[in-house]
Design a protein around this nucleic acid. Sequence first.
DNA 1: TTTTATATCTTAAACGTTTGCGATATTATT
DNA 2: AATAATATCGCAAACGTTTAAGATATAAAA
Lengths: 397, 397
Amino acid sequence: MPRVKCPKCGKVETILKSGFVRGVQRYYCKECIYHFTLIKKGRYRSSSFDNKRQTTIIDIAKAVGVSASTVSRALKNHEDIGSRTKALVKQAAIELDYQPNLLAQSLNRRETHVIGVVVPDIENPFFASVLSGIQHTASASGYKVMIYQSNESHKTEAANIQTIMNNWIDGLLICHSKETQTFEHLKLQMKKGIPIVHFDRICEETATSKVLLDNVTGAKQIVTHLLNEGCRRIAVIAGPKHLYITKKRIEGYESAFKNANIELNERWIAYTDFTKSSIHDAIDNWLMEEIKPEAIFCISDNSAILTMMYLKHLKLKIPEDICVAGFGNDYTGRIIEPALTTYDPHAFKVGETATKLFFDQVILGDKFEIKTVTIAGELIVRSSSLKRSYNPSDEEA
Amino acid sequence: MPRVKCPKCGKVETILKSGFVRGVQRYYCKECIYHFTLIKKGRYRSSSFDNKRQTTIIDIAKAVGVSASTVSRALKNHEDIGSRTKALVKQAAIELDYQPNLLAQSLNRRETHVIGVVVPDIENPFFASVLSGIQHTASASGYKVMIYQSNESHKTEAANIQTIMNNWIDGLLICHSKETQTFEHLKLQMKKGIPIVHFDRICEETATSKVLLDNVTGAKQIVTHLLNEGCRRIAVIAGPKHLYITKKRIEGYESAFKNANIELNERWIAYTDFTKSSIHDAIDNWLMEEIKPEAIFCISDNSAILTMMYLKHLKLKIPEDICVAGFGNDYTGRIIEPALTTYDPHAFKVGETATKLFFDQVILGDKFEIKTVTIAGELIVRSSSLKRSYNPSDEEA
DNA sequence: TTTTATATCTTAAACGTTTGCGATATTATT
DNA sequence: AATAATATCGCAAACGTTTAAGATATAAAA
């Protein structure tokens, strides 16, 4: 056995072994009751982390010969710091290519400058536009955008919200999935006090700011337009009954009729699930009857496209035999023939507004009162509804 | 003057005033040379931060009666911790609704589990799909996705990269803007050793992994198909000459001709900037000549749509008078009449693959070797190119 | 000159985790 | 019974900033 000296008393004869810990022999001195090991391992973090190391405030401090706090203050022009020191610090910061560690900042300040966004599906053009609006607005104010998709699944949505909230975001912008009908998963997180803004498919049960499409007005404008074109029997391809947009757009539809003092028949409203087959079924049902619709108002552009394709398949002429209108102003509506009359909800602006509402809440803090903003869109009249004045050559090249 | 006692020696007569600092009177004791203030302000962080406070590892430690490090280890099943303690800690964690602070974790571990993504434009369906693929794949592995748009601007792209890199992301997935022709802004950041993966519009100068569309094969397949349909004079609506996709798709175009042993005329290649007017100009030029093209291969679906609309405007019949094909398989290609022959680049898979390449690099570390993956797409033949067998009723309903 | 102000820095704690290594009580070996 | 090994914990430093409050040198005032 090697002669081991006690680091305290220096004696050798009092030393005993004391087992292994993580593979290294330990000793202890009977007299001092002092435990110790011989091998001194390397430092806290040895090698692999070093190359990732960025210049820190401390590096600057050393370079300039001041303390770290002085550097911190100098960089943000704190009045306590002398102009000479400020200049030196800033100079060094540039020379050393200093970039503040936002993580450390966030940890300290308890804010991340990250906005979490949950949308059902990024590939949906509407949401893509909203997202674009969010990203632009956020970026302009130095905020970052973290995205999640629920894939129209309630379960995924709940999971997303859970993880997103654990990431110390400063705010959450959300559009619920079609499936979502209960909102406990959201209410649970609201206790943390993080600003939440709903858009499009909102939740009416929570005290959150909301950004809405002008569903009622939009639908009303479209239907009024159809009425003006002379259509009286206007059918509706609606979505699932529980959906917010379904309710609202139907409301606009009814409002238009009421406004025009025209009777409305429940028979003309078909609640579908937006699938091709459910839409075809609805159309088949209407066409089987004696009295057929003169126009079909589809609650979404996508279903309008499906409707038009099916009608064309049935050799019906649009708009001569039947008019069609959609809602959303997807790019496709411009492409299909005849071009689709629709309502542009100004999706980009929806995202923009949602982000701004979030900013308001951040700035005003407790003084902020939640509000609901409705984004005015615009009616886009194209050939698919121009029964009276249809002229194929109107189509733009 | 109030009688102030020295906190050290307790004397009163030795106390002198010593100015104000941040509004509070300071004193000092002549004897002790000790400076002090009377008012003791509140703690480090007083009120407003408290409500945002989450349960920490320290709270659990107190509740269970162990140290913070034991809690940390217990929660990740470290072998050093006894099973009884583990159970107690986990129980307390649940009861106190503990959520680890990912910021603190990231700061300590020097990894954020965040992937930064820079795309030219989220509203572009192709990028939306790629983004969707990235988000899905990242989420599945517990990574978060932070998005930026360059808006096809080199300047914005550079700024994005700069800020994104300061955010301690674990990796960067990027598709360059159309404008981008120099890559110094990227190379500068590469020194930090953060994995970068290029997709679609890649950078050939950097040692980064890349995910490519099968531009050459795709274009070749399309053109070969057109040749098979009997077209010989196949014109091309290309993009700007410096663009990677322009080069590659032209390469495929030429390859198809070479393969078929057919002479190719430079006259049939038009470099546009994808705008409506530049496309119209190109078409006008071709149609003015004696010998007109039998087919037009557009390098993107969007330009194909514009081409078709213009051709229809000119009363040319597609595909009888002239065939058209695109590239990209945008949704619109299914809607337009006749439906557009195109090439599906499998955008979602591009995003998925880029993310996986990033993961590979993270897992393998230094042992990882950069690679370039080409995603096989598929030719989508629709009516717009079926010169020989065109039957309008083929269109799907 | 003596006392008080001002200008400019520094110290140290705090944000919430992770982790190297030291410290004991307990159990197993001679 | 003495010594060695094992099983469990705790301490403290480190990640990079921010900031309340203390410490001086210098200038101003009395």
